[in-house]
């Protein structure tokens, strides 16, 4: 075990769990999508669209996107903490990443809800 001085802050357990929980959601979705692609083999616009336009896949795809953006936040934050040592620059980059991801979430909702 690692000897740590307790300082009262969290040690990132919540993020650690979130990273893995979102990974499991995305892995399950990936398998569902691969199976769907394999079974249907969409050959045109209607077939391709029909994969995502039914209620179940619409829900699952949106869940995938939300998991993806949350997962990306934890991963990119780790990368920034490892390589960007200037506190100000790191903060700016983190804010930019969060802003982009929130925007992507809205974008993904727009794509799926117009189907």
């Amino acid at each position: 075990m690692v000897n740590r001085v307790v300082v009262g802050a969290g040690y990132g357990l919540k993020d650690w769990i979130a990273q893995r929980a979102t990974a499991v959601v995305m892995a399950v979705y990936t398998l569902i999508l691969l199976a769907t692609l394999g079974a249907l083999g969409p050959s045109g616009f209607e077939a391709w669209r029909s994969i995502f336009s039914n209620g179940f896949m619409q829900f699952m795809t949106f869940l995938f996107f939300i998991s993806l953006f949350w997962h990306v936040w934890i991963g990119v934050r780790d990368i920034l903490m490892d390589y960007i040592w200037n506190d100000g620059l790191r903060l700016v980059l983190m804010i930019a990443v969060v802003a982009a991801l929130v925007g992507y979430a809205g974008w993904a909702a727009k794509i799926l809800w117009r189907l």
Binding site: W48, R49, F52, Y104, W107, A108, I111, R114, L115
Partner: peptide, 8 residues
């Protein structure tokens, strides 16, 4: 995301 949007 853009490509996904265009395709649908």
């Amino acid at each position: 995301l853009w490509l996904f949007q265009q395709s649908l």
